[in-house]
């Protein structure tokens, strides 16, 4: 049973890693935001399996809630597409 936890943890954290890389490379900022929220959801399950409920509570409220709202607010006031290169 212990191995199953470790396997779930490995899968979840590698997916979070992949999504953070994709969010970095994306030029459409709204899409990057959605990818980043996928990443934070995966990491939340990772923290949960590592038995840290305090961090799950704080991380979810900040990374899925306030961060998303702030970035969408900033996008709506500036530009949606990143230009350059």
């Amino acid at each position: 049973m212990q191995e199953l936890h470790l396997i779930i943890l490995a899968i979840v954290v590698s997916f979070g890693f992949v999504f953070s890389y994709l969010a970095m490379k994306e030029h459409d900022l709204l899409k990057a935001l959605a990818l980043s929220s996928v990443q934070s959801t995966f990491f939340a399950l990772g923290f949960y399996i590592l038995a840290a409920p305090d961090i799950v509570l704080a991380y979810l409220a900040i990374a899925v809630g306030a961060y998303t709202a702030l970035v969408i607010l900033a996008i709506s006031k500036t530009e949606r597409y990143e230009v350059g290169e």
Partner: peptide, 25 residues
């Protein structure tokens, strides 16, 4: 419940406060 019960169960002031801010959002 997260904030006021923070000294008995997981949570505390910061967690409860950020949850409340999301309600306002």
């Amino acid at each position: 419940s997260i904030a006021l019960h923070g000294h008995l169960t997981p949570g505390g002031g910061f967690q409860g406060g950020s949850a409340m801010a999301v309600a306002a959002l």
